[in-house]
Simulated scan of single mutants.
Amino acid sequence: MIKPEGAAIPAEGTQNGANPTGTQTLTRGLAVMHAVAGGARDLMEIAAVVGTTRSTTHRLASCLVQERYLRFSLTTGYGLGPKLIELGFQAREEVSLSVVARPYLELLAEQTSDTIHLAIRDADDVLYLDKISGKKGLEMRSRIGHRMPIATTGVGKALMLGMSEDGWKELYGKRSFATTVDSAKLFKKGSWNAFLEHMQQYAQGGYSFDLEDNEPSIRCVAAPIRDASHRIVAAISVSSTIPYMPYKRMQALIPIVKQTAAAISQELGAAR
C-alpha cells in the first residue's frame, strides 16, 4: 500500500473510518496523491491502493482536483496537478543549498579529515559557497566567496560534466595554466586532447579529479550535485596534498564523494 511515510491510513469501517475528519482526511488525501504519483489512474485503482471505498475515493479525488493538486482527463484519468509544480518550484527557491548540504559536508569531513568544498558555477568560474578545513594542518587558497577558473578545479570539472565537448573546449580555452613543474607534467599548455580524455573519463564515471591543475601539490576528488530536473547545480570535493592524496586513495574516495553528492541531490529532489 502506498502511503505517506510514517502515516497510517485507517481502513474503511474502522472508528471514524466512514466519515474521516481532520488528520484522517489529510492522511487519506495525501495517500490519494501518492497513489496517483505511483501510477493509479482511475478511482478503482486509487481505492485499491488507499484502502477506501469508491465513494470516499471520489470525494477525496474531486476535492484535490478542485484545489489543483490533481488533474483529471476523460482520456488519461487522474494525474498530478499544476499546484504541485508551483509548490515544488517555490520549495526549491526557498531551499538554501549551503544549509541543506552542510550536514553532509561535515560528515564527509569527519570521514576523510580533509578539506571539503561546496561550489557552484558563476559564468566561467566556480564560486565557493562553503569550505570545511581539514585536520592535517594544511591551508589552501580557496575560501568562501572566492572564484577560480572553472576548468582548473576539481569542483569546476564536476560542474562541467553535463556539458558538451564544445562547452568543455570553450572553458578549457579560458583556463589559467599553472607554471609549476609538477603541473606542467600533468597538463602542458595547449594539451586539449589530454584534458578531453580526462573529461570523457570523468563524465563516464560521474566524478572528477584535480591533479594539481589549480594549485601546486593539491589534489582533489569531486562529484556533481543535481536537482529534481537532473541538472547539475553544484559540486563538492575532498582536497589534500599529494602525500595525503596518492592516486590510489583518490580512487578509493570516488564512491564516498559520489554518495555524499547523491545524498545532497536527493535533498534537492533528485531521484534516487
Rank of each mutant, 00 (worst) to 15 (best):
D130C: 03
D42R: 08
V238S: 03
L64N: 04
A35M: 03
L87G: 04
E93T: 00
H117N: 13
R54T: 10
D210C: 15
R249Q: 15
R231D: 06
D130L: 07
G51M: 02
E5G: 05
T179H: 15
E106C: 05
D124I: 09
R59Q: 09
M199T: 04
P246W: 12
A37F: 14
K185T: 05
T25Y: 15
S217F: 12
P255W: 00
L129I: 14
C220R: 00
A262T: 01
W192G: 04
Q266V: 01
R219I: 09
G6W: 12
S208Q: 02
G79Q: 07
V238N: 02
S183C: 03
A223T: 00
A223V: 00
F72S: 08
L74Q: 14
V238H: 02
S55L: 12
V99N: 00
D42I: 11
Y78W: 12
Y104F: 07
Q90K: 13
R59Y: 14
Q200V: 15
A109W: 10
I242K: 15
T53H: 04
N19L: 10
R59F: 13
Y202N: 08
L118D: 11
T27Q: 10
P20E: 06
T152H: 06
P246E: 12
G173E: 05
D114N: 07
Q111N: 10
L26K: 11
A91W: 05
K258Y: 01
S208I: 05
A178G: 14
V65F: 09
R102C: 04
N214T: 13
M163T: 13
M160E: 01
Q15K: 15
A11L: 06
K174M: 10
M148I: 02
D210V: 11
L171I: 10
L129T: 05
I2V: 15
V36C: 10
K174R: 15
S191T: 04
H230A: 09
P246Y: 07
